[in-house]
Structure formats: C-alpha cells, structure tokens
C-alpha cells in the first residue's frame, strides 16, 4: 500500500460542550473498503461527515488523495468533487428527474456539456440497474431505487473515494439487498470506500477492514473476521451481541458518558 487515500490525524469534533470525536487516527488505502460500526452516538457518522468537511473538525487533519481538506486555503468544492457521498435519507433532488439528478451536478460543477453529461448519466444508471427509470421523478421510486440513483449520481462525478452514511438504514428490509449489491460491485471494481453501516454480513463479506467506534474513539480496528468474529474488547462484544440478537438484550442502566 502506497500513500493512503484517506488519512485522518488526531481528529476532534465538538458540538458545543458535547465532544463527539475525541482524537481519531485512521488511514484507508487505495481500493480499500472500510466499514465503520458502533452504537448510535459513537461518532461514526460525524467522522464520515468530517472526511468531506460537511462537518468542520474542531481539531486535527483530514487528507484525501494527498490533499489536506482541513487546510483553510484549500478549494473545498474542488476536493469534494473527488469524494462521493451517499446519505441515509438519499437526498435526491425531488424537483428533477432521475437523469437530471445525474446531469445537473456534472454540468454545473464539472462544466461538462449536455451530451457528455447525458452519456455519463446513462452509463451510471445502467451500472445500478435503473436505466428504465431515467425519466421518473424520485418520489415515484422505492427507497432502494432512490438510494441506487443517489449512488449513480455520486459516481457520475467520477469520484476517487466513496463515503456511505448508513446507506441502508432508511430502507425496508427487502430493499436492502439491491443497494448492497451495487456497493459490492463498486468494491469489486476497486473503489476506495468508507461505509458507516449496521449490516454485519456486508461488513464481514465485503470489507477489507472493520473499525469499531464507541464514545468518540476507535476501540478496535482490524480484519472483519477478527473484529466481528473474535472481538478483543468487551465493548465490541457487548455491541455485537446486542446487534446480532436484539431480542436477548437486558434492560440496562443508562450510563452518563
């Protein structure tokens, strides 16, 4: 592995008095797929949003493709074009058709001409298996279809890195598979991916590495079989047991941190 594609150094993030990230160090190599897991409130989504600076870190550095995003002189809009992001709530533009969702950013941001933008859009819609929905409006699509369009929209910008923020958490269970299949295809094609997820099967089968976060720090970081199969930390074991068998969880006293 040469220079890491994503590098996070000593990252802190606070919202007022609430310190959400307490010193994160993380490296993701080119073509690597890293799944970030952890209980809600552990800071995993905030970490992901710091990687493309949707959240401004309080302290620390973020590098993507060798460019420091946290440098105040960097053109953040230019760097973000290289970083695709997929949201839990899809965030498609509801006033545009599926094709327009894919072409407008290319034309406005990358200044591609109409024909080229349309060609790239069609290619990416085909990749996610939704060519026949090209002229539909987002509201007429299922959640799974909307999320696949959102992935195609991000891909149309030609990103070097893809960030996924709980991409399947807002989906009906039977629609999760289609989205995961697209993500698996991307992983196989060698895309560098950082995925915040609760899908343990996906993490286990597709990820090169799994990072377990809790309380704003990385608790465990390693091979999926190790982190999910033989976790060394009690906190990881506790989280996984609740996730894999929620019905067996005991009522617990809320801890204050």
């Amino acid at each position: 592995m040469s220079r890491p594609e994503i590098q996070v150094k000593g990252l802190h993030k606070s919202f007022g008095d609430n310190e959400v990230l307490r010193g994160i160090d993380l490296e993701i190599g080119q073509g690597e797929v890293v799944c970030v897991i952890g209980p809600s409130g552990s800071g995993k989504s905030t970490l992901l949003r710091c990687v493309n600076l949707l959240e401004e870190p309080t302290r620390g550095q973020v590098f993507v493709g060798g460019t420091e995003l946290t440098d105040p002189d960097v053109d953040i809009d230019a760097v973000r074009r290289r970083i695709g992001m997929v949201f839990q709530q899809f965030n498609l533009f509801p006033h545009l058709t599926v094709t327009e969702n894919l072409t407008l950013p290319q034309r406005r941001v990358l200044r591609r001409d109409k024909a080229q933008a349309a060609r790239v859009a069609a290619e990416n819609l085909e990749r996610v298996g939704l060519s026949e929905k090209a002229d539909a409006y987002p509201a007429s699509l299922s959640g799974g279809q909307q999320q696949r369009v959102a992935i195609a929209r991000a891909l149309s910008m030609g990103p070097e890195v893809m960030l996924f923020d709980e991409p399947t958490s807002a989906l009906d269970p039977e629609l999760v598979g289609d989205v995961l299949a697209v993500m698996r295809m991307l992983a196989d094609e060698g895309m560098t991916m950082m995925v915040v997820t609760h899908e343990m099967t996906f993490a286990r089968e597709v990820a090169d590495r799994v990072v377990f976060m809790d309380g704003g720090v990385v608790v465990e970081d390693g091979d999926p079989d190790q982190v999910i199969g033989r976790p060394t930390h009690a906190r990881t074991r506790h989280f996984l047991s609740r996730l894999l068998d929620p019905a067996m969880a005991q009522v617990e006293e809320e801890s204050s941190d």
């Binding site: 949707l54 973000r80 949201f87 533009f93 407008l104 910008m157």
Partner: peptide
C-alpha cells in the same frame, strides 16, 4: 437540510447550490 448537504457534497459552491437546488424547490 439534506438537499444543501447533497449539493455541497457533489461540489456545488454555496451560491450555486442556492441557485440550482434550493431556490427552485
């Protein structure tokens, strides 16, 4: 709010996101 975030994450500047994405909606 997610609309602005999506636009920004695609590389839209704040002004362009306002004109192309937010104001039409």
């Amino acid at each position: 709010k997610g609309q602005l975030e999506a636009a920004r994450s695609l590389g839209f500047s704040p002004a362009r996101a306002m004109v192309s994405i937010i104001i039409p909606q």
